[in-house]
Design a protein around this nucleic acid. Structure first.
Length: 111
DNA sequence: GCAATGACTGGAG
DNA sequence: CCTCCAGCCATTG
């Protein structure tokens, strides 16, 4: 079954990520109130490419800013391309100035 | 319902 | 910020 509740809220947050910004699985999990379920966030992203509308999963990386899920895009180079496309510099499968482009989900609370 | 899995995280070196 | 170890948790077989 697609669009499960847990996946849904993860997709929602990821879709709210502004252009040229990235966030981490733990940040999303924490925002959802399930910081312990950080792994589930990544797991949910596994269905992101199959979800509708598709979510910018390339904007979601681990806490180190490493493109851990690049393999799930089908093309490992695709994720880096998309990130650079947004103005984000990627070096050795890791985001440059990660803390600078990092986006906090809690920013949604600020209208 | 139990066992295995995984796009993770925090603590320590 | 990098590497290794152990803990958490929902989905799947």
């Amino acid at each position: 079954m697609n669009k499960d509740n847990f996946f849904e809220m993860v997709f929602e947050v990821v879709r709210q990520i502004p252009y040229g910004r990235v966030t981490s699985y733990g940040a999303i999990a924490e925002f959802l109130g399930a910081k312990r379920s950080s792994r589930m966030v990544g797991y949910a992203m596994n269905g992101a490419g199959k979800a509708t509308p598709p979510v910018p999963a390339h904007r979601v990386v681990n806490r180190a800013g490493m493109l851990t899920g690049k393999a799930a895009f089908g093309s490992t180079d695709l994720m880096q391309e998309l990130l650079e496309r947004e103005g984000i510099k990627v070096k050795n499968d890791k985001i440059v100035d990660f803390k600078t482009v990092f986006w906090h989900p809690e920013s949604l609370l600020e209208s």
